[in-house]
Amino acid sequence: MLVITAPTSAIGRPLVDDLLDRGEHLRLVARDASRLAPEVRERVELVVGSHGDTDVIDRACAGAEAVFWLAPADPAAPDAEAAYTGFTRPACAAFARHGVGRVVGISALGRGTPMAEHAGPVTASLAMDDLIAASGVAYRAVVCPSFMHNLLHQAGAIRDQGVFSMMTDPDLKSPLVATRDIAATAARLLADESWQGAGEVACLGPEDLSPREMAGILSEVLGTRIDYRQVPGAAFKDRLTGFGTSEAMAQAMADMFDAKNRGLDNAEPRTAESTTPTTFRQWCEEVLKPAVRA
């Protein structure tokens, strides 16, 4: 029995499909089961509720061999610690209580670097990894740079204004990763019963790109000029709080991008094993372009 949290997320959906194709027996923890495709609901066990809830995650872990763990984005959280380690603490107790053997979690690059010491969600994610590993399970943190998927939130601005914006230095080359490639790595680890102990598995897209280079690729794919605009930290925070993000979480996000600008995502050496297949151009053609054209 494999337990999958956040099964309707950008990582969770392809992960569930991959594991079902492998013939795995799945139990999904979902706040809203109606967001699951009917053909998926017919083939899985369901536990309805938040996986941050003590009773929900306790029921989900009963008899589980392995768990996929993804702490959901929570812009309204009082701080990053609450959003990651606070949210995860009930699960760690459930892992130990039910003797869960293996956990695969989604986390961030940067362990052991000075940049990670004050990097908002990254710092909190690494503390979450330590908390899970301390529960006694075998643990693999799938550590990632920024997701290509995040650009979908700017599909309207790309279509209507011909621009996308971030805090990132326009000339900083860094890795990106497609969520489907993260899901494929997680599926492989969940299906493999041979690994033990605690460790990290990096997922780096096949190329390092700057925002200016991303804009060039977007322009070619969409057939129109797309520009990149760097947003100062203060304006970035204001934009987030305007969307309802708490002050502390907005500051945490600004701290994360400041750390990325100082090389946080560039510290992980690229290897054949850590390099994932989906290029930014391919992702733009297959995912972003249809969203912009919709």
Rank of each mutant, 00 (worst) to 15 (best):
G101D: 15
V103W: 00
V104Q: 01
L109Y: 02
G110H: 06
G110E: 03
G110D: 08
R111I: 02
G112N: 08
T113R: 14
T113S: 15
P114N: 13
P114C: 11
P114D: 11
M115H: 14
A116I: 12
A116E: 13
E117R: 07
E117Y: 02
H118N: 07
H118V: 09
A119R: 01
G120S: 09
P121C: 01
V122D: 01
V122S: 01
S125I: 00
S125R: 12
L126M: 08
A127T: 03
M128Y: 02
D129E: 15
D130P: 06
L131Y: 05
A133R: 10
A133Q: 07
A133H: 07
S135M: 07
G136K: 12
G136C: 10
A138V: 08
Y139M: 03
A141S: 14
A141W: 05
C144Y: 05
P145R: 11
P145A: 13
F147V: 05
F147Q: 04
M148T: 11
M148P: 03
N150M: 05
N150R: 04
N150T: 10
L151G: 00
L151T: 04
L152M: 06
L152A: 06
H153M: 09
A155T: 01
A155Y: 02
G156K: 13
I158T: 14
I158K: 12
R159H: 13
Q161E: 15
Q161C: 14
G162V: 15
F164G: 00
F164S: 00
S165P: 04
S165W: 07
S165F: 07
M166H: 12
M166T: 15
M166G: 07
T168D: 14
T168R: 13
T168V: 15
P170K: 14
P170D: 15
L172P: 14
K173M: 12
K173I: 06
S174A: 14
S174F: 14
S174C: 13
P175I: 07
V177P: 03
V177G: 04
A178G: 09
A178P: 06
D181M: 05
D181V: 07
A183M: 01
A183F: 01
A183V: 00
A184G: 09
T185H: 03
A186T: 00
A187V: 00
R188S: 12
R188I: 00
L189E: 01
L189A: 02
L189H: 04
L189T: 02
L190T: 02
A191F: 03
D192Q: 05
S194V: 04
A198N: 10
G199P: 08
G199A: 08
E200D: 15
E200I: 03
V201N: 05
V201F: 13
C203R: 02
C203L: 06
L204T: 06
L204H: 10
